[in-house]
């Protein structure tokens, strides 16, 4: 009898120990997943500048645009044509209706990234008479000024115009005294008119 009771107790104890053991074994399950990687950043550059030729080097300082890049029509004459890496400044004298001056130069992209025009500085000329009074009304009616992407100066440079890596875009800046005066000349200027335009600015973004 005692032997049977002892056997039963031993079995119960063994079952309890087995359950405990299983519990300990459950807590040990785990797995580590490994994620091994490398990332490389290749050398790159952002380099857009003005140049006087399609393969011209980047100007280290402002220089005079070559005469070959300047067209003076009629009695017009250019008095300033300064080109630097990021700035073109000009000045001209227009004497007779129909006079115009055209400057041509290039924007070069020698960087790694394609670019596109984000915007251009809206060309607004300011005009003054020799006695320093405003001639703006006169200019608004008779003077045009713009930056163009074709030699005929009919297509203005606009946003989203591309300038891909390792390429150049030719620009033409034209200022003109329109031939649209009254036949009796009543609206011809009585004094010399100085026309001033801000520096041409073209803003680029990565494309």
């Amino acid at each position: 009898m005692e032997k049977k009771r002892g056997t039963i107790v031993a079995i119960v104890v063994a079952l309890i120990l087995a359950v405990i053991s299983l519990g300990v074994a459950f807590a040990a399950f785990s797995t580590q997943l490994n994620i091994n990687g490398t990332a490389t950043v290749q050398q790159s550059s952002w380099n857009i500048f003005f140049a006087s030729a399609s393969n011209g080097s980047k100007p280290s300082s402002a220089g005079t645009l070559p005469a070959a890049n300047i067209t003076e029509h009629g009695s017009a004459s250019s008095t300033l044509a300064s080109l630097s890496a990021d700035n073109f400044s000009w000045a001209a004298t227009l004497t007779a209706p129909g006079d115009y001056v055209i400057y041509t130069f290039y924007a070069r992209n020698t960087g790694s990234f394609n670019a596109k025009v984000r915007s251009t500085l809206s060309p607004n000329v300011t005009c003054t008479y020799a006695d320093t009074t405003s001639a703006q009304t006169f200019c608004n009616s008779h003077v045009t000024y713009g930056i163009y992407k074709n030699e005929a100066c009919t297509q203005a440079v606009t946003a989203d115009d591309p300038l891909n890596s390792n390429s150049s875009a030719q620009y033409w800046v034209k200022v003109m005294l329109l031939d649209n005066f009254a036949t009796n000349g009543s609206d011809l200027p009585t004094q010399a008119v100085t026309v001033t335009a801000p520096a041409v600015s073209v803003y680029y973004d990565q494309n």
């Binding site: 399950f29 785990s30 797995t31 580590q32 997943l33 490994n34 994620i35 091994n36 990687g37 490398t38 990332a39 490389t40 950043v41 290749q42 050398q43 790159s44 550059s45 952002w46 380099n47 960087g111 790694s112």
Partner: peptide
């Protein structure tokens, strides 16, 4: 673009882990 890499730069091996229990 003045701080763009002038030479190619590569990371050392990145050893990440996710463990499950």
């Amino acid at each position: 673009g003045s701080d763009l890499p002038t030479e190619t730069v590569k990371t050392n091996q990145i050893s990440a882990t996710v463990s499950f229990g």
